[in-house]
Design a protein around this nucleic acid. Structure first.
Lengths: 333, 333
DNA sequence: TTGTACGCGTTATCAC
DNA sequence: GTGATAACGCGTACAA
């Protein structure tokens, strides 16, 4: 790779002049500018961003660490983040924590040694305390999809309680009174919040909370299969089920189809997240929409904002909404 | 951020010694090693990778440019790439070309100025010629999911013709003779190859190729809706349809359900890619499996290999396989 | 085993 | 408008 020196030699000017035309400094004569540009593309010159970063102490890149790169969740999020960052000349460095605390730490170390201008964290394994310490040491860290009270001004998160409430309320409004819930793993704060929303809707309607109707599942693919089986085996009676996410809802579809049943007939099903495949299920899944892209966009803008003026950023809570499709219907009795 | 100098001052040794303990050089006395390590974590020292890269001319990172970060395709691929790279201390810098030739170029420029050790290209917009030029200039560029004859030793790609053949052959074996195809955009080489596979299967079975049965669709979500509508409106008779990918197959599901029909009844449907949601469709989608993770793993290993010994790498063609599920059945006549 | 000093490719501050 | 030259943080001969 050609260096600035080779360019300056070829153009017959000093390195400083080359640097000036690179950075759009207008105090360069047209003749020299021409010469430099010619030399540049003759050599296929690309500035070495390491050297630039070393000299300016700015990397023009922001890092993100996500639980896992695969899955329908992070793709759209990273997509929207990258879109807004790029417009400002910033780039995204993606690392995966593989939902493992040691790897999450390692990823953060890596990004720090990369001297990224900001770090976006979408992690679950790491504890609140560790997050707090991290954020106090580094003023450019933001937390996505998670609410830590002490870090409120740096969190962009979903109102999960409201989501759980909306899902449950929808079934109640349809006339259901025996409503089960297959939650996500309750070590995840969002699963707990969604469950709380469920309880709120119940109590608002004067329906008693019955622990028998609650099962804990997992968020990932097939993560609800065992849990759903457990629920049905309890032999208790219910007409609707609120699921921790769409994957869990799919498991319920599966179980029902084993008995040649379909959601919305005997049992109504409500999901959570509105993943893009949910509208392709049959019957189409009624679910809670999670504005993933919006979360990404807001996070990216917050980063930019923070780079410009540290004191202007504030946390954001996003609101979920109910998407009614076909998997929910009045109970048959 | 602390620098190596602050560490050396605090530890009472020279910068060189600090550098030695960082890089595991064993020619350091235990006493000094202890002191340095203590100083390091007291200061929360993180080496500046820009300075390291500048000094060593190695960045320990590989760049990837993909068409779009969202979608069910790139997530799993990036996931597997990142997994193997990380084990070797390499990191992944992800950029999106947004399926736009100018942005793809920009992404490559960015990665070059980042002096990445290798570049992985998963792009469609860029021409073969441009790719060839790029690869000859830079010996560490690899092309994924695309076959360029001149670059055969740097391509990791799928045998798309075989995939198209398998899909079609499956329907023929079931007894179908009037088989339509909704292809991907024929500007994409892979769509053309899949179509060719379709033709091969037909001719092998002595069935004449009928252009009336071919419609061109798009790969993205809903990309097959218009095309499928067009096909049905032609009013010609067929009993099976081979789709360019699973998204297109979903569109066919949609159209059929509008008439209260279901795949595998009057019309059999075969997809392509085996995206993870395909088994959750009802009926479960018969499709061609695309080993995405494997492609990622192979690519990452190739990068590593190439870094170790330039002359040892070779291109790889991956084989698709048929996954029979429920959307295909013998024709009713 | 340890320290000195130079080079990596830029930017930025000076003089001119 | 232009050109020296000193940082930036680290690796690494080379000398001690």
């Amino acid at each position: 790779m050609a260096t600035i020196k080779e360019v300056s030699d070829l153009a017959g000017v000093s390195q400083a002049t080359v640097s000036r035309v690179m950075n759009g400094n207008n105090k360069v004569s047209d003749v020299n500018r021409e010469r430099v540009m010619a030399a540049m593309d003759k050599l296929g010159y690309q500035p070495n961003s390491f050297a630039q970063a070393l000299a300016t102490n700015r990397s023009y890149s922001v890092g993100i660490v996500v639980g896992t790169l695969s899955g329908p969740f992070f793709g759209p999020m990273m997509h929207s983040i990258e879109s807004v960052l790029r417009k400002e000349g910033q780039h995204l460095i993606a690392t995966s924590g593989h939902d493992n605390i040691e790897q999450e730490r390692e990823a953060i170390r890596f990004l720090n040694s990369r001297r990224v201008d900001a770090i976006l964290l979408v992690v679950q394994a790491m504890s609140d305390d560790e997050l707090i310490e991290l954020c106090t040491r580094n003023p450019n860290v933001f937390v996505l999809n998670r609410y830590v009270p002490e870090l409120a001004h740096r969190c962009i998160y979903l109102n999960n309680e409201l989501g759980g409430y909306l899902a449950t309320k929808h079934l109640i409004d349809l006339g259901h009174t025996r409503i089960a819930s297959i939650t996500g793993p309750l070590v995840h704060f969002d699963a707990r919040e969604r469950l709380q929303g469920y309880r709120n809707a119940l109590s608002e309607a004067g329906i008693e909370y019955d622990p028998q109707l609650i099962v804990e599942g997992l968020y990932q693919e097939d993560g609800g299969t065992k849990a759903a089986a457990k629920l049905f085996q309890r032999g208790i009676d219910f007409t609707g089920v609120v699921c921790g996410n769409d994957n869990i809802a799919i498991s319920v579809y599966d179980i029902l189809s084993q008995d040649n049943e379909s959601p919305a007939e005997r049992i109504s099903v409500v999901g959570y997240d509105d993943m893009f495949y949910s509208r392709y299920l049959r019957p189409k899944l009624t679910t809670i929409r999670f504005p993933i892209e919006e979360m990404g966009t807001i996070a990216a803008n917050m980063v930019l904002q923070n780079l410009a003026d540290k004191n202007l950023v504030n946390g954001v809570q996003l609101e979920p909404s109910l998407i009614v499709r076909e998997s929910s219907a009045p109970p048959v009795s």
